[in-house]
Design a protein around this nucleic acid. Structure first.
Length: 891
RNA sequence: GCCGACGUGGCGGAACUGGUAGACGCAACGGACUUAAAAUCCGUUGGAGGGCAACCUCCGUGCGGGUUCGACUCCCGCCGUCGGUACCA
């Protein structure tokens, strides 16, 4: 028989609560709020303590969806909360803020349906999220709450955009600089426009008429599957020149304390590859085809060329005889999305243009084709095809009967290496590895690396090419046609763009009659005719920014969220990002080692943001750094990804599977402390792990047992401090288990191993549970350990204990210093030692801690068990690992 | 295909830098309390075999090899699960 979940709910709520979490949790939340217990002063505030080091611990702030929190949110949030509370008790100034990434399509979709301003729905959702988070007892400094849709916030998002707009990348200095410097040098307006970090370009985008917006490549499939149409068409778009920073974004990853996997993901995304640019003269024409290749050493094997169908030279090169075929093919490609083009890539397709180009290395004429396996968006949009040494070219050449010329021979040593030779010829039919050049008169016999260098130098000398570094990273398509996003602070006049005056920021979108898409690629804001018309001849830009914009810098705003004069006050920004503050340089700098580039000390969030958000934020941060607006080159010093929480069935949580767990329900039944504790007890933070209601009950029982160690209920069911608690000496066993816990919990919080920290606290409580009388002082110490994990119950017990034992428990537990362990309680005078014979455990003996190695050897050899197993054999070796074991090798 | 993570009892997971595998919790079983149940408290619990018994023996960290006195841990080769990515020249 299966009970429905609603039956279980009823059973649970009727069950008597094992401890009054439903009373104490709201009580302490109210206390913290009314006393502003977790308000964090900034440098300059009267209560700012400059002698303390700083710690900035940040969560990836949520998009406040209509569904409310799911149990995945509190996982990372609890982890950071524990660290924040711990660091505070350790004497740090802790910055631990929360806010809302509140622009976004769902709110706009709601507005389209209801005609209601998206702000109304957004605010409702924010209120719900805030309520839910407060109910979990997080120690955020709510005075620093921010909302990306708040005009006061939008103002600075737009201000940063203008910094990008007013800057260019100085390749020599490797830095962003104001375009003013170029004006001073006499550059023309057009020249300047062509180098701005924020620029306008006409590029093919994924346009969805019914959504009324362009979509990022990675969004296309999702919306298509929901029945929306998406087509490709060229549109005028705002772009951000992130590619200029590719090298720095890649190189400076190195100094960051991020998971290696994430660094690798970013570095692959940036996709640096070294090679050569080579120029091929088009036969009988002026035009030159530029290609990029990582294998210039295979130039002699280039038997044809391929241009992307959109390549600008296609028209010039195509011969009259081939024109119709080429046009047909190009039309076919244009109607396909990038995704379709790659998805349907089972067979290579393409058309001969009829034109030829000259291979610069040997003067041979080779045919020029177009094919959609060459992408306009990578490299130069054209390739030299070397079918003998590139799998794709090989496939294409085989398909269309183009010549294949071998120019690299696999070296003997690699041929001999163990691998199956049979399938090699079958699946690839070409050799793509490194070897020795053949059929290449200029450098026959040279190994690949040398051949590359030689041909590149030759090309450079002849002016036919040069060493080139290419990046996969593309410029960032930054404009959307939505309503619910930051408008661009840009005006248009006579076909030219201008920045809105800084004094006019923020540019706020107008109220609309309705929020329905225009049905054309015209942005929604173009319907607000009055607003668009800035002056007689001046119109406003009607695109809006993507959701990423706000999240690119929110961590900076938290340093000083109320500042109206700057994105964040200089002093506050420097203090929270570097630890330096006026008058406390020594103390502040101590928190930051010489190699520490500064930034947020701990940033926790999901892997889904491994690339885009983290890359975009790093990009903006570097621009702001170059322009002198922030003090560190990187925003996030240490990054940790929490693992996904699966449903109880081990499947991804989803509405359709019906396995979604709502934190509100968990709190209702077991309390916020149990929710927090279980989220941390499930397993390692970074790991994927399934939810378990039984597991929540387990930690709930632990908290109830903790409660009963301190509290005793009378006949009427009223709780009072237990009579067992005295001002007495703790037993040896209690001291050992407690100090072991102090040591373990301290180390485990530092290494974010919360699950094992909780185990250790459980052992502690198990020890206390059995005691006849309990030492008040040690119980108070235990509450310090529990406090970051279960702040409500620990605070309540601390205040109960303090009422009778004020010497051991006074003030707010959350503000009392973290305990230190005393190593002397952990030292045992007798150690249990394992005796192995040939690596197998045969006996265990108790020895004094002072026994020498010789003593131990003798003791081990005397053991009855050893004699039994070593009988008749020679002792060859005795290995003694002090404090651990003795291994006797016989044979 | 490529890249990354992972694989330990019935389950979630522990195990420091190579040194007693299975901490802690869940589930299960037995006992105490109770008229009874729930809750609580105490105990047992990797598998197989043996002993009246305290206990003893063998096997055991996905599979196959290797290094080592000793391997969950290091190396080589497979298999499987999950996540990311996709013609990047």
């Amino acid at each position: 028989m299966v009970l429905s979940s609603s039956c279980l709910d009823v059973a649970m709520s009727e069950r008597r609560k094992q401890y009054p979490f439903d009373e104490i949790e709201p009580k302490w939340q109210h206390y913290w709020e009314t006393h502003a217990s977790f308000r964090t002063p900034n440098p300059g505030d009267s209560d700012f303590d400059s002698t303390r080091p700083k710690f900035y611990v940040l969560d990836m702030y949520p998009y406040p969806s209509g569904q409310g929190l799911h149990v995945g949110h509190p996982e990372g949030y609890t982890a950071t909360d524990i660290v924040a509370r711990y660091k505070r008790k350790k004497g740090f100034n802790v910055l631990h803020p929360m806010g809302w990434d509140a622009f976004g399509l769902p709110a706009e979709q709601h507005a389209i349906k209801t005609g209601e301003h998206p702000r109304i729905n957004t605010e409702k959702n924010v209120a719900n999220f805030r309520r839910q988070l407060k109910r979990i007892g997080f120690c955020y400094d709510w005075a620093r709450e921010i909302n990306t849709t708040d005009p006061a916030y939008v103002k600075w998002t737009q201000w940063i955009f203008l910094q990008l707009y007013h800057s260019y990348f100085d390749a020599e200095a490797g830095k962003a600089r104001p375009v003013k410097e170029l004006q001073a040098k006499g550059w023309t307006r057009d020249q300047i426009d062509s180098v701005r970090l924020a620029y306008v370009d006409e590029i093919p985008v994924n346009w969805s008429p019914d959504l009324g917006t362009v979509l990022a490549n990675e969004e296309v499939e999702e919306w298509r599957s929901k029945g929306h149409t998406v087509e490709r068409r060229p549109l005028r778009q705002w772009m951000l020149r992130i590619t200029a920073f590719a090298e720095r974004l890649l190189d400076e990853l190195e100094g960051l304390d991020w998971p290696e996997g994430i660094k690798l993901l970013q570095s692959n995304w940036i996709g640096r590859s070294e090679g050569a640019g080579v120029r091929f003269q088009v036969s009988g024409q002026e035009e030159v085809i530029d290609v990029f290749t990582t294998r210039p050493d295979t130039l002699y094997g280039a038997t044809y060329m391929v241009l992307a169908p959109e390549h600008p030279l296609v028209d010039e090169i195509t011969t009259p005889a081939q024109r119709d075929a080429v046009e047909d093919y190009r039309r076919g490609c244009a109607s396909k999305s990038e995704l379709e083009r790659t998805e349907l890539a089972k067979e290579k397709t393409g058309v001969d243009t009829g034109g030829f180009a000259v291979n610069p290395v040997n003067g041979e004429e080779i045919p020029v084709w177009i094919a959609d396996y060459v992408l306009m968006s990578y490299g130069t949009g054209a390739i030299m095809a070397v079918p003998a040494h590139d799998a794709r070219d090989h496939e294409f050449a085989t398909e269309f009967g183009l010549p294949i010329l071998e120019v690299v021979r696999q070296e003997e040593s690699t041929v001999d290496s163990p691998r199956s030779t049979a399938d090699d010829s079958e699946d690839r039919g070409c050799f793509t590895g490194e070897g020795v050049a053949i059929n290449s008169p200029l450098f026959d016999g040279l190994p690949t690396p040398e051949a590359k260098a030689k041909i590149t130098a030759w090309l450079e000398k002849k002016g036919l090419g040069e060493k080139t570094v290419n990046y996969k990273l593309r410029d960032w398509l930054f404009s959307r046609q939505r309503y619910w996003g930051e408008p661009f602070p840009i005006l248009w006049e006579d076909g030219r763009h201008h920045a809105v005056d800084e004094g006019e920021l923020p540019v706020v979108a107008p109220e609309m009659e309705d929020y329905k898409p225009t049905g054309s690629p015209e942005p929604l804001l173009s319907k607000a005719v009055e607003w668009v018309r800035y002056a007689d001849t001046v119109r406003r830009e009607t695109n809006t920014m993507p959701q990423w914009a706000g999240s690119c810098w929110y961590y900076l705003r938290f340093c000083d969220p109320g500042n109206d004069a700057r994105l964040a006050g200089e002093e506050a920004e420097r203090y929270w990002m570097t630890g330096e503050s006026p008058g406390t340089d020594a103390a502040g700098a101590a928190g930051r080692g010489a190699n520490n580039p500064g930034g947020v000390d701990l940033y926790i969030g999901g892997t889904e943001h491994a690339v885009l958000h983290l890359l975009y934020a790093r990009f903006w941060h570097k621009v702001l750094y170059d322009l002198g607006h922030v003090s560190t080159p990187e925003p996030f010093q240490k990054l940790v990804n929490q693992g996904l929480i699966l449903g109880e069935d081990g499947q991804k949580m989803s509405k359709s599977r019906g396995n979604v767990v709502n934190p509100d329900d968990v709190i209702e039944d077991y309390g916020a402390d149990s929710l927090r504790l279980f989220e941390m007890f499930m397993g390692p933070l970074e790991q994927v792990k399934p939810w378990s209601t039984k597991g929540v009950e387990g930690v709930y029982r632990f908290l109830a047992r903790t409660w009963r160690v301190f509290m005793h209920s009378d006949q009427e069911g009223n709780w009072g401090l237990s009579d067992k608690i005295r001002d007495c000496e703790a037993t040896k066993g209690q001291l050992t288990v407690l100090h072991r816990a102090i040591k373990k919990v301290t180390g485990d919080i530092e290494s974010l191993s919360f699950n094992t920290a909780i185990s250790e606290m459980m052992k502690c409580v198990n020890e206390f549970t059995q005691a006849e009388q309990l030492p008040a002082r040690e119980l108070a110490t235990f509450l310090h350990l529990l406090n970051p994990f279960a702040p409500h119950i620990s605070e309540e017990l601390f205040s109960q204990l303090g009422a009778r034992f004020p010497n051991y428990a006074s003030g707010l537990l959350a503000h009392q210093p973290w305990p230190d362990h005393d190593e002397s309680y952990l030292v045992e005078d007798e150690i249990q030692l394992v005796i192995q014979v040939n690596g197998k455990v045969r006996d265990r003996i108790l020895v004094s801690a002072e026994a020498t190695e010789e003593d131990l050897k003798a003791l081990a050899l005397e053991s009855e068990k050893v004699k039994q197993f070593a009988d008749g054999k020679t002792v060859r070796k005795v290995i003694v690992v002090p404090g651990k074991l003795i291994n006797i090798v016989v044979g």
